[in-house]
Amino acid sequence: MSLKRQDGRNLQQMRNIEFKLAIDLSVDGSCLYKQGLTEVICLVQGPRAKTQSELLLIEYSVSPFSNIESKRSSKFDKDYSMFAENLKESFENLIILDENGKSEISISVCVIQNDGSSKSAVFNAITLALLDAGVSMKDFLVSVTVGLDQGNLIVDLTQEESKTAQGELTISYQSRKQKIDFYELKTLKLQQQEMDQLSKLAVSKADEIYQWMKEEIYQIKQKQIDQ
């Protein structure tokens, strides 16, 4: 008999993923991304005339009401600022920026509801919003969170599960190049063998999400062309 998790999922089953493109017509690209109860909104202002010195601006924020405990996030919080830097680094490599350095792209992403795996949701939301804006980039960047709970390998942790988990791994992955871009491990104690298992599982799940996401977008864009 297979084990079930708190919310009735199988051990390696993702939550239901939904996304909606072009939710805001006043910006160039936008996306509302839902993964279970986790919700992320992302807005992209596509290549426009430069107003600042940087070519790529990323603004990452977590709304104060998103967590169970209401907590105001600040720019000086180490966790937030570190992650914002990581985001910038990985998307700088992904996006084909203007060679002449005369145009900029600004991305603002906000976690509206946090029910675990919010960091991987942020990566996916930004990728989709960039795609909606028509920004030229090299590949998809797909992200997934896996964990180890009571000796079981589980995928897409909720907030409750991440509290009790022994280890939690978030990766972002470029499927075509088979290259891991971002790697974050939160753990108390983990053995080498378990670590390898986690990485392998994360990569295979990221591949699955990549295939699924691609299929969905093909259908959306095909409809747009047919119109």
């Binding site: 795609l131 030229s136 590949d139 998809f140 299929e215 093909y218 864009k221 062309i225």
Partner: peptide, 12 residues
């Protein structure tokens, strides 16, 4: 799933 008549291309 193969796209035999692939009309739309995505990044990558």
């Amino acid at each position: 799933l193969h796209h035999d008549k692939k009309e739309v291309f995505l990044p990558g």
